[in-house]
Design a protein around this nucleic acid. Structure first.
Length: 264
DNA sequence: ATGGTAGCGCTGCTA
């Protein structure tokens, strides 16, 4: 079973790239973030033409998450549940059961700057995520929490930690929130399989030629529960999808897809 | 060519 996660940085201008990537890489499940679509505008038929069922949760303009699956799509639920639900839900969480695995597509708030109102709501969102794990999931059942975490778990998950003093994505409270997910029972599949590497990065700023300078971060992650750890075969980042390409009409996303392969 | 990029939507926000 191949699981992918990709922050597409708006689906409409990227649809051709996403279609081509799906056809070439054939993930069984692909989680998308930052679709920036309403549910009405989501291109369900384009994905159906590639043999994917699709679920989407989006309000248009900002955020928006989707799950594409070739191995079934059942029990779809959008957003947090119970006391963690909010009327001002920003469409950052979507869950469904695909091929016997609970799949979550997640877009953690960016946070803007340490101490900013958005940073506070980022930590609150992560707190709600932990609450959701405890209330609605079982660490002994197969589950994969895929998406843009907007957290670099370790210093080697950024290109130069000295450039990140006082920055978001590496602050102690964000990493503590991330550690809480691991303490619940999740395992960072890429780091588990590739324990001695720098990165591999999944995001590079559009500005200043960051991609070509190697100024990236590893913030797109596939966290899995223990039953799936035993099935982990490989994990990689498709850097080619971050390249512009000679004839492409629109720019690539600033994120590259992360791909995890599980044994059956 | 002296330039942080890109998308959304139309002025400035978000990332």
């Amino acid at each position: 079973m191949r699981i992918a996660t990709w922050n597409v940085a708006s689906l409409r201008p990227r649809l051709e790239r996403v279609e081509a990537w799906l056809a070439a890489n054939e993930p069984d499940v692909c989680c998308l973030q930052e679709t920036k679509c309403s549910d009405e505008a989501f291109p369900t038929m384009a994905f159906a033409a590639l043999d994917y069922e699709a679920a989407h949760h989006g309000n248009g303009q900002w955020n928006g998450v989707a799950i594409l699956s070739k191995v079934g799509l059942e029990g779809v639920r959008a957003g947090f549940t119970g006391p963690r639900a909010r009327e001002d839900d920003e469409a950052r969480l979507l869950v469904a059961r695909c091929g016997g695995v609970e799949i979550a597509s997640m877009y953690v708030p960016n946070g803007k700057a340490v101490g900013h109102e958005s940073y506070v709501s980022k930590l609150d969102w992560l707190d709600r995520l932990s609450g959701e794990l405890e209330a609605s999931f079982d660490p002994s059942s197969p589950a994969a929490f895929c998406g843009d975490y907007n957290i670099a778990p370790e210093d080697r998950d950024v290109w130069d930690i000295s450039q990140f003093e006082g920055a978001t994505h590496v602050s102690a409270p964000e990493r503590a929130a991330f550690a809480r997910l691991l303490e619940w029972g999740l395992v960072d599949s890429t780091r588990y399989l590739r324990p001695d590497e720098v990165g591999p990065f999944s995001w590079w700023d559009y500005r200043a030629g960051a991609f070509h300078k190697g100024w990236g971060m590893r913030i797109d992650l596939v966290l899995v529960t223990r039953p799936l750890v035993a099935r982990l075969e490989s994990a990689h980042v498709d850097r080619d999808a971050r390249k512009r390409g000679i004839k492409a009409a629109t720019a690539p996303s600033d994120h590259a897809p992360v791909v995890v392969d599980l044994s059956d």
